[in-house]
């Protein structure tokens, strides 16, 4: 029978097993950085598109003045832009995380990963539906703050099953969302900070803390 007598070795083995079985440790910091860069590009595209109409980043008033939910070209453009950002961010997240798991020889879709994703998607889907309801009620100016708030809550909830940096990131997003709902009209700026800058910042922090030492 395989044995480990050294107490230090035993404690390390115990800790390792506890972490691996309860936390999703394959989550890659680089996926945060990539998602942040993609969000910045997407926000830049939206910014310059709106700038064309001399409305700058006051996206909310811009749409309010345009007789609310008139489904014109700019609506289509912004929605498409947001969907492309979301799609690319998810894709890069899955790519870098899969790469990290493969490098460490870990299973990607284990029970910890499942729990993290489920706990993330409960507040996130509530937020998504809530934003659609906001649009239905013509409360466009609250959509950007609401996405930040619910995304932050989703991260805090999911952080129980992964690195604790995710929790700090979540709290930052919540604070940003609250500020954004107070300072109405700067939705795009808050959104850029929340989804772009913060992702890059915390992504790099996680990368240097957990990934950089082990690979390359």
């Amino acid at each position: 029978m395989e044995q480990n007598q050294e107490p230090i070795q035993q404690l390390n083995a115990i800790r390792n097993m506890m972490e691996r079985s309860s936390r999703f440790i394959s989550l890659s910091g680089l996926s945060g950085v990539a998602a942040g860069i993609i969000a910045l590009i997407g926000a830049g595209v939206a910014f310059f598109y709106l700038d064309f109409d001399q409305r700058y980043f006051d996206i909310d008033r811009y749409f309010m003045e345009r007789s609310y939910l008139k489904f014109d070209h700019s609506w289509l453009f912004i929605t498409l832009d947001a969907l492309i950002v979301l799609g690319l961010a998810l894709f890069s997240g899955i790519y870098f995380t899969t790469r990290k798991a493969r490098k460490k020889g870990l299973k990607i879709w284990d029970s910890a990963a499942r729990r993290m994703v489920i706990n993330m998607f409960i507040p996130l889907s509530a937020g998504g539906i809530f934003c659609l309801i906001l649009l239905y009620h013509h409360l466009v100016f609250l959509v950007a703050p609401a996405t930040l708030l619910f995304y932050g809550l989703a991260l805090v909830n999911a952080s129980k099953y992964t690195f604790h940096e995710v929790r700090v990131l979540g709290i930052s997003e919540i604070l940003l969302g609250l500020m954004a709902s107070w300072l109405v009209g700067y939705g795009l700026i808050f959104w850029t900070v929340g989804f772009g800058v913060l992702h890059i910042f915390y992504g790099m922090m996680m990368h240097y803390r957990y990934d950089a030492k082990h690979d390359e």
Partner: peptide
């Protein structure tokens, strides 16, 4: 708890409410 496997099983069960056979097999 002298065996690596038994220590591993106990560690996993300490921090998880319940775990199925396949998950334990993958982890260990």
């Amino acid at each position: 708890f002298e065996s690596r496997v038994r220590l591993g099983i106990m560690s996993v069960l300490m921090v998880n409410e319940s775990v199925d056979f396949v998950s334990l097999k993958d982890l260990l």
